[in-house]
Design a protein around this nucleic acid. Structure first.
Length: 490
RNA sequence: GGCGGCGUAGCCAAGCGGCUAAGGCACUGGUCUGCAAAACCAUGAUUCAACGGUUCAAAUCCGUUCGCCGCCUCCA
């Protein structure tokens, strides 16, 4: 296996080699649980879900840690608003997070440590940093001495001088240097707090990931991931803490995914342009959201819009329809006498699906290309299916059913095409039917009447019925097997 | 101001120095159909924001300009 991944630290793609062959250790920054998750969180969870699935598909063991930040300023503030404890609030939104993740079919990480359950590890780590004079207590707080870490800025590509010139750092008299960041915060009255050698307080944000990743993955591990907005300061600071404490490289490869945007602007609470996962799932099947998210390579920005979701839905339906059609092929009609439809080129193309798919994924998880390969395959399959007569050549039949299996297997890495194709299409139909003012029975009756009219060559009546149904957004599809219908998208 | 990313057909999106610039959606023409729809087939960028440069060869590398976005403060 040779997977090339873009490494933020090196600013280029490199061939990934786990420290322990066949066992990949991955840490991803999870959510701060104080609200419902939006599509950006979905992209993060889905991107790493896909990456983990792909590594496992290649035969690796993956130890995947994703934390919960369940104590921080926003949680405290929100809990105060809602008259509950920080713990209650955080746990409530962790539960809500799981509701969303389960709907999206996101596999659970190996472990999901919570910050509040690892205070001792953080205190220990801070003590080590003080011991090395990389950190210092001040008025109940503890700060990291940024200037004493020579590599500071190497992940985000910044120089300390440039950052100071930015001068957007708030003045804090407790700090020796304005760039120093907090490891431990003295608690104010009424705030949640834990005992420490420096007095009652709570951990800073960055220290939790350093402490938890060390506990579960060791001093140096393979991959650390998160959104691009975490590169600075969060990951830069984590790196500084861990490398100073452990005297070892922290992480070999950093993966950062791009944002979800709306009208080309970052989704954020302050702009008020965010959509929650559950908002989306109210209107779309989870696989449509997955399909949409994987239609762009994970590092590029992804612009959300209704039109884009509709397009994703149309594409996904197309794939499902092909699979459903292959599933419907009656095995009994296979005959060696039937002419073979598939050309040598078609056969080659379909036999190479998996290789091409892997090649795409090996190039920094290029799911957009991978989806393209699925579409190309479906195109070939549809052609064979379309041209096949009443009886199907055994070679063609084999080819179609095998290809469908391969497609289903590969699509599982992106978490799409995992439902039974007929069930998916039927469920979709009934869901849409619920939004339309006509019952399935009425439709069926009208179709029967229309077919009678067609038999009588009463085209006027036949078209009248078709138009009538069209007014209800029902579109008819005549085929050799009879008349089917779909609901047109409004 | 500092750092980084992006700009490919109407829209979305691959491409990472050299085969005809993937694929999807939409459009148009054809096959099919009583007519449609669906499906299938066919069609579209002599060109990759602009201008220079490197190279036998560039959408791909370098420089300049224009436009958009992100980070530098909590953030997926």
């Amino acid at each position: 296996m040779s997977v090339k991944i873009y490494n933020t630290l090196k600013r280029k793609k490199e061939v990934f080699q786990p420290i322990e062959p066949g066992h990949i250790k991955l840490y991803v920054c999870g959510i701060t649980s104080y609200d419902y998750c939006h599509i950006g969180h979905a992209r993060s969870a889905l991107a790493f879900d896909m990456i983990v699935r792909y590594f496992r598909y290649l035969g690796n063991k993956v130890t995947y840690i994703r934390n919960f930040t369940d104590i921080d300023d926003k949680i405290i503030a929100r809990a105060a608003e809602q008259n509950c404890s920080s713990k209650e609030l955080a746990n409530r939104f962790i539960d809500e997070f799981y509701v969303d993740m389960d709907k999206l079919g996101v596999d659970r990480p190996t472990m999901e440590p919570k910050a509040t359950e690892h205070i001792q590890e953080m205190v220990d780590l801070i003590a080590e940093l003080i011991e090395k004079d990389m950190a210092y207590p001040s008025q109940g707080d503890v700060y990291y001495r940024v200037g004493s870490f020579p590599g500071y800025g190497k992940l985000s590509g910044r120089k300390l001088e440039d950052m100071q010139a930015g001068a957007r750092i708030q003045i804090n008299e407790n700090k020796d240097d304005p760039m120093d960041f907090v490891l431990w915060k003295a608690s104010k009255p009424g705030e949640p707090s834990w005992e420490s050698p420096w007095g009652a307080g709570r951990p800073g944000w960055h220290i939790e990931c350093s402490a938890m990743s060390r506990k579960y993955l060791g001093d140096t591990f393979d991959i650390h991931g998160g959104g691009q907005d975490l590169i600075f300061p969060h990951h830069e600071n984590e790196l500084a803490q861990s490398e100073a404490a452990n005297d070892k490289p922290y992480v070999n490869l950093w993966i950062h995914h791009g944002f979800v945007t709306i009208r080309d602007e970052k989704m954020s609470k302050s702009l008020g342009n965010f959509l929650t996962i559950r908002d989306i799932l109210e209107h779309y099947h989870p696989e449509v959201l997955r399909f949409f998210i994987f239609s762009t390579q994970y590092r590029n920005p992804l612009d959300f819009s209704e039109a884009a979701m509709q397009q994703a839905m149309t594409g996904l339906d197309r794939l499902y329809e092909c699979l459903a059609a292959v599933e419907s092929l009656p095995a009994g009609t296979v005959s060696d006498d039937a002419e073979q439809i598939a050309s040598a080129k078609d056969i080659k193309k379909l036999e190479e699906i998996e290789d091409r798919f892997q090649k795409a994924m090996n190039n920094d998880f290029n799911t957009a290309l991978a989806q393209g390969i699925l579409f190309e395959s479906v195109k070939v399959m549809n052609k064979i299916r379309r041209q096949a007569a009443e009886t199907l050549n055994a070679t063609d039949y084999e080819l179609l059913t095998k290809s469908a299996q391969t497609i289903t297997k590969l699509a599982a890495i992106m978490g799409i095409l995992q439902e039974n194709p007929k069930t998916y299409l039927a469920a979709k139909k009934s869901a849409m039917l619920a939004e339309i003012d006509i019952s399935e029975e009425e439709i069926q009756n009208l179709i029967t009447e229309r077919n009678q009219a067609r038999n009588d060559k009463n085209w006027a009546r036949s078209d009248e019925i078709r138009d009538q149904l069209l007014k209800h957004n029902i579109e008819l599809k005549d085929s050799a097997e009879g008349t089917g219908w779909i609901i047109k998208k409004g």
